[in-house]
């Protein structure tokens, strides 16, 4: 574990907590894409299949449970909780996210490190996470300005994988044989998708107004 990866995990945890805070306390999911949340639930479900078969550390297992639990509970809240569901913007959240799942699965079947069930699904989760934010970014453009909590959520979610890139650079130079092109390219694509959001976020942040 290095400082970049720890910072990345904490940023990711913070993004999830901000979203749960927003949904649980003010019972609102305005501006949040349910489709992105559903994709993230699939990402964690397919990435952490080894949670019971391979133990890395208490920290690792704990964080996996947090991300699994939070992503599924956010989907549950947005789908079935009356008060929260009422604030869900169904008309605007129309990105065909299922069209992202199949190409990622096909790509994982073609490009992976090992052709085993767990490895292919793990690779699929990497490709899917890279594009999972698209429905949210599209919704963002449609709903114009969003509240600060949603803006912070997206900022933290985009930032965590950027910190992971620093972690991969650090590990590449400090650990022999640490080369994982698939993870690196997927992580880079994922972070680059946030580029224009980051641009507007910093513009608004510097201007001291909400994210528009």
């Amino acid at each position: 574990m290095n400082i970049f990866r720890l910072a990345g995990d904490m940023t990711h945890l913070a993004s999830v907590l901000v979203l749960l805070l927003k949904i649980h306390t003010i019972k609102s999911c305005a501006g949040v894409s349910l489709r992105t949340q559903e994709l993230y639930a699939i990402v964690f479900a397919t990435r952490y299949l080894d949670i019971f078969t391979s133990f890395v550390s208490v920290y690792n297992t704990f964080m996996k449970l947090v991300f699994l639990g939070s992503s599924f509970s956010i989907v549950w809240y947005m789908r079935y909780h009356k008060a929260v569901h009422r604030t869900y913007d169904r008309e605007q959240d129309t990105f065909r996210h299922w069209f992202l799942v199949l190409p990622c699965l096909v790509l994982a079947l073609l490009i992976h490190e090992k052709f085993t069930f767990l490895e292919v699904l793990w690779t699929f989760s990497l490709y899917l996470e890279a594009v999972a934010i698209l429905p949210q970014l599209v919704l963002l453009q449609r709903t114009r300005n969003i509240d600060n909590l949603t803006g912070q959520y997206i900022f933290l979610l985009g930032g965590y994988r950027g910190l992971y890139i620093l972690n991969w650079i650090y590990r590449y130079f400090t650990e022999p044989h640490f080369v994982h092109w698939i993870t690196w390219i997927a992580g880079l694509v994922q972070t680059l998708l946030y580029a224009d959001f980051f641009y507007y976020y910093f513009l608004r942040f510097i201007g001291g107004r909400g994210v528009e």
Partner: peptide, 10 residues
């Protein structure tokens, strides 16, 4: 050796 690196990252 390309030992199947244990997935220690989240």
């Amino acid at each position: 050796p390309n030992k199947s690196y244990q997935k220690d990252e989240l």
